[in-house]
């Protein structure tokens, strides 16, 4: 777990996630939307992407699909409050509010 990209349109969530992963020793980048995440994706080449699902514009599931295509080795985690979504293969689905230890374990 070295480079972690965090995507959420809620600044509070983004800050809490950033603190969690920074303290865990990761190099963290944050994006407030899927589009912003895509803009830094190639330059950052993340090992882990944690994304919210419901955001204005592109959804988390769509973003993680793109991530999966470009960085097949990257660990992908969807943080969401909704069940009616087909998260796709190899994506870990995690409920909000997340349990810090569980989230860290899922990204390891």
């Amino acid at each position: 777990m070295s480079r972690v990209l965090l995507v959420d349109d809620e600044p509070g969530v983004l800050n809490a996630l950033a603190r969690l992963f920074t303290r865990g020793g990761a190099e963290v980048r944050t994006a407030p939307s899927a589009e912003a995440a895509l803009a830094i994706l190639d330059g950052f080449a993340p090992d882990v992407v944690v994304s919210d699902h419901r955001m204005a514009g592109m959804t988390g599931v769509e973003l993680l699909r793109v991530v999966g295509a470009r960085f097949p080795a990257a660990r992908r985690v969807l943080l969401s409050g909704y069940v009616d979504i087909d998260v796709g293969d190899d994506v870990v689905l995690m409920a909000k509010p997340y349990v810090a230890a569980e989230l860290l374990a899922a990204c390891r």
Binding site: E10, G12, A16, L17, G81, K96
Partner: peptide
């Protein structure tokens, strides 16, 4: 309601825990 409560509770929980 659950969705609107969950979003802020997500970081409130994390912040208080931390």
């Amino acid at each position: 309601i659950a969705h609107e409560i969950n979003n802020p509770m997500c970081f409130v929980t994390a912040n208080v825990d931390d």
